[in-house]
């Protein structure tokens, strides 16, 4: 059984009330051990569309920004979110950023985001020429919603129980590595 389906989340009433928990824009990313071959990735993502791998997310197209030295390189644009291979200096990530969601609450949105990301990683790992190796035990989290989730202690307090629960389910520990709305579970 997929462990993500058994996330046990404890929350208090204050956390539920925080606007960050209403956000649609959850971003989760895996850190990669090495750069991905952009051409192979583009081919694999086009194939995802053709083979209906992410039909639920309604894939629309593949966007290519491999010419950018820093930023997204290749994206699978979907109606409900974007899967992107992203480069930031030495850091290479595979990210799922939800944009609009069908799930009612933060718990299921977070769980769904993790599910999509891990599913994509698994499929890409099986794709020709995409040598995807994720760093074990590391997951980066961000909320890309400056209105609902400003970079503050309150936002952190609101989302932390959910992240802790997800980390526990995935067998990792939570560790803050940046500003409040972009953190790393490792």
């Amino acid at each position: 059984m997929d462990p993500l389906l058994n996330i046990d989340i404890h929350r208090d009433s204050e956390a539920v009330a925080h606007p960050a928990l209403a956000t649609q824009r959850i971003s989760l990313a895996l850190e990669l051990e090495a750069a991905l071959d952009r051409d192979a990735l583009i081919t694999a993502l086009h194939r995802f569309i053709r083979d209906d791998h992410f039909a639920d997310e309604i894939p629309v197209d593949v966007a290519n920004y491999a010419h950018l030295a820093d930023g997204p390189q290749v994206l699978l644009i979907c109606h409900y979110g974007q899967l992107s291979y992203d480069v930031e200096g030495e850091l290479h990530t595979l990210r799922w950023s939800s944009r609009r969601t069908r799930q009612r609450d933060f718990e299921t949105r977070l769980r769904h985001a993790a599910d999509v990301l891990l599913r994509a990683a698994r499929l890409l790992g099986e794709s020709d020429g995409v040598d995807l190796r994720a760093r074990q035990g590391v997951l980066r989290f961000a909320i890309r919603d400056r209105l609902a989730a400003p970079d503050s202690a309150e936002t952190r307090a609101a989302v932390e129980p959910y992240l802790a629960s997800l980390a526990e389910t995935l067998g990792v520990t939570l560790q803050l590595v940046g500003h409040a709305s972009s953190r790393r579970a490792s």
Binding site: V60, A63, L68, P72, L75, Q82, S84, R146
Partner: peptide, 25 residues
């Protein structure tokens, strides 16, 4: 900020000195 939250993380400069965001709802 708007590119990150509503588009695909990229801003595109045009040949008429505009900029564009793509994949916006």
């Amino acid at each position: 900020e708007v590119a990150e939250e509503y588009a695909d993380d990229v801003v595109h400069a045009t040949t008429r000195q505009d900029v564009q965001l793509h994949f916006v709802h």
